[in-house]
């Protein structure tokens, strides 16, 4: 899995899945459609502003609330390459990996990185570099099998590939 570099978008504590993708848009599961409304109730213009490869840097308990997989799907489809937070809600944590969205836990990086800073992330080592702020942080690295899962685009794509390769 290669490095990610992009602009940081800061959010606060306890960003819930209703803020990530409001239920009024859950009458579809089309990623492109969901991406248009990503983070709408936390930052109304987010989907229009965010660029491919950007990074969400948020407070504790990111993704709390409902089990909707539409949340990591919307974030990934909006172009966001990685979410950094001190902690993630349990269901969101599993859903992120299962849908192929990279997430890293680091309280220090989440606190120090400011909105708009350029950030570089190495998933293999867990190194997070705040290029604008000139600081480096260490998150727990993403284990190799989880990197493969992310590279393959999520759990099911990963399994299909593994089952095919085994044949």
């Amino acid at each position: 899995m290669h490095n990610i570099e992009g602009k940081a978008w800061k959010f606060g504590d306890d960003i819930d899945t209703d803020a990530i993708i409001p239920a009024r848009y859950l009458n579809t599961s089309d990623p492109r459609e969901l991406a248009k409304y990503c983070m709408e109730d936390a930052d109304a213009g987010f989907a229009a502003k965010v660029a491919a490869g950007d990074i969400i840097v948020a407070g504790k308990n990111f993704g709390c609330g409902s089990s909707r997989e539409h949340a990591p799907i919307a974030i990934k489809a909006s172009g966001v390459a990685c979410v950094i937070a001190p902690t993630f809600a349990r269901i969101f944590y599993r859903n992120a990996f299962n849908t192929g969205l990279l997430i890293l836990e680091s309280a220090e990086a989440a606190a120090a990185i400011a909105d708009g800073h350029q950030v570089n992330v190495d998933p293999a080592t867990g190194t997070i570099k705040d290029l604008t702020g000139g600081q480096t942080f260490q998150a727990r690295p993403v284990p190799e099998f989880m990197q493969k899962l992310l590279d393959d685009g999520g759990l099911m794509a990963h399994w299909r590939k593994r089952l095919r390769d085994d044949k």
Partner: peptide
Amino acid sequence: GADSHTCTYGALGAFATGVGSTD
């Protein structure tokens, strides 16, 4: 259950938890 309030069934003495659609 692919619904976070699946934990309701804990009231019956079951282990019940919400998961995402892929799980």
